[in-house]
Amino acid sequence: MIKGLLKKDLYNLASYKTTLIVIVLFCGIAIIGTDALYWGSTVIGIIVGMISLSTFSYDEISKSNKYILTLPVTRKEIVLEKYILAIGATILGGLLGFIVTLLVGNVMNYLRPDDFIDVNIETLLSTSIGGMFGISLIQSIQIPSIFKWGAEKGRIQMFIVLFVLVIIGAIAGFLLKQAGLSVDIEKLESILNNFGLVALILLSCLMYFISYKISYKIYKNKEE
């Protein structure tokens, strides 16, 4: 039954595939010649991961939710399917970001051997996983709020969430500076590389799990 729901969402997204390819290509091109090579992997990861959330919009436009509840599926399966899709998109986004950035880096080195960039696999890995963590955080907050308020209102929610996160980050940075502490990027990276990546992945899993529990609780009693 979940397979049927997944197929429905993937077929819906099929009309999105051209847009998706264009975005990934654009990002790939955009990072050419910039110092922000590694960020490319994060951005691509986030964009691909976010696309899974647009299946909620498709459902809303088609008013599918009511109909789906008449099919032989449980509400649990309906919620679970959205998480499978979200996690799948996150993994795909991370992989795609990693591969595209790696390719772009090497192609650039081939084209401009005198301006050599060291494409560091480890750094790339941490930026990719960092991106995946970011998207899993957004999805974990977003999915329950979409189940609660719907995709259209959920979109507004997302901007509020992102805004709040940015503000919190800025305030934290400001406070750290005030306290005389500076954030050492390289130190952070080395911490991440040593044991942080696994922790990030575990943290993502935990967030998904809690988010799923909340979503199910919301959808169990939802009336369409």
């Binding site: 397979k3 436009i61 599918s64 009511k66 109909y67």
Partner: peptide
């Protein structure tokens, strides 16, 4: 059970062919 709701269906972004492919999984 077969159900028809006046304003709701699986998806309006699919073709009848895709509907078949999805429904056989349900």
């Amino acid at each position: 059970l077969g159900v028809v709701l006046d304003d709701s269906f699986l998806s309006t972004y699919l073709t009848p062919k895709y509907i078949n492919s999805v429904m056989k999984d349900f």
